[in-house]
Design a binder for these strands. Structure first.
Lengths: 230, 230
DNA sequence: CAGTGGTCTAGACCACGAT
DNA sequence: TCGTGGTCTAGACCACTGG
């Protein structure tokens, strides 16, 4: 058997035994190197596989940690992040990074909103103190006047409903696997190059008008998506 | 800038220029190493990032190649693989790996079919000669007698409808990001450890009886999922 | 057969985290 | 300050692909 597979199996066994709880720290790369009379390159090969598999994750220069149970997510439903995560036994937290309404349009403005002025809301969402999602929400400045004065660390759907009388009635998501862009990786305290699920979501009201357009970057090991159909 | 990022950018530029078409072969690792006066480790770091990003892919010991446009897939719809891929300009192909009905039950049998005897159909699906999907389909032996004598390289939904008068009316998918299990990687001519989308799908008839249970492994760079909701 | 990617060794320096 | 992961060098042998 290949050496990096031995190391991988060794760590998998550590996890399976239950001797390592979610969130706890693995032995350092150099100590694993000594354990197996090997080199860091090979140890890191094993760790990378386990990371891709979703069993462990690294935080920049802090170390390697055991992944928690995945969050079950319904991309095609109006979901309340805080409620959903609590139902599944996690402690949610939302941080507003910025809300901007610059005079110059964004790229998405041209593509989806025919060039009109937009708000851009950027947020990071955490479960159990681990940042697992960064999202950018774009919506019309004219339709949501004063949005930047609202409380934005809860459900945007609720804010739109309560303060602007706008209801979402349909949405379309496109989901792909890619890597975190560098600026997103930084916000989530990950290395650039970390795999992720990218979700692009367009939401419409009853008149089939586009209400908002979201781009979400989910850590690949933090989520599983549930879709029901027909 | 980091060296592996320089190499990554260099290759990205090659792709963006259009000088490299989908499916064409990249320079070898050793030639890139010479170009940048670097080492294979560093070159492979750059290639791994580009692979994770979905821009290139490797085939075992054959080399690195440029990825094609992604296939758009609606996981929550009854879709005909052959029709869908052709509509998007690809040339589809389905290979039946095996169909078995062993006396001993499968693990899924216990979990989903309360222990009854099952067929297990294993197939690989290709677009433009590239294997991008391996799937296992489980269904009741008693309900689909003689299924192993049917033509199984087309739509299973059609076979069930035409020969067994069974119609799918509802389905539920669970989608996660992980790595190809070793035996799947082999079938798809990939290294073990290649990232993938894993789709577990349960399909029900009008009486809410479970008709079949599928496990699909999609190459992460070959597909983007489209989901519409509410 | 030559060339390719897959695996591996034995080191090194750096930036950043924890303390 | 010390330990950590992040990046990098300069080689090596092997299994397999392709001509």
């Amino acid at each position: 058997m290949l050496l990096y597979q031995k190391i991988r199996n060794y760590i998998q066994d550590l996890l399976a035994q239950g001797s390592m709880q979610p969130g706890s720290k693995l032995p350092s790369e150099r100590s694993l190197q000594d354990t197996f009379n090997s080199t860091r390159i090979t140890v890191r090969e094993a760790l990378a596989r386990l990371e891709a598999e979703g069993l462990i994750y690294s935080q920049k220069r802090r170390g390697w940690f055991v992944t928690s149970k995945k969050l079950s997510w319904h991309p095609a439903r109006k979901v309340n992040f805080n409620r959903l995560t609590k139902e599944q036994g996690f402690e949610p937290k939302t941080e507003v990074i910025s809300i901007e309404a610059p005079s110059s349009g964004y790229h998405v403005a041209k593509e989806h909103f025919s060039g009109e002025a937009l708000f851009k809301l950027t947020r990071v969402r955490k479960v159990d103190e681990r940042a697992i999602l960064m999202e950018e929400i774009y919506c019309l400045e004219s339709r949501f006047e004063g949005l930047d004065k609202q409380a934005l660390n809860g459900s945007i759907t609720d804010v739109m409903s309560m303060h602007y009388n706008v209801e979402i009635s349909h949405e379309k998501c496109v989901i792909s696997v890619t890597v975190l862009p560098d600026e997103v990786a930084q916000k989530l305290e990950k290395n650039s190059g970390a795999p992720c699920l990218k979700v692009k979501r367009a939401r419409y009201d009853g008149q089939k008008q586009l209400v908002d357009y979201n781009v979400e970057y989910w850590l690949h090991d933090a989520i599983e998506m549930v879709v029901e159909g027909i």
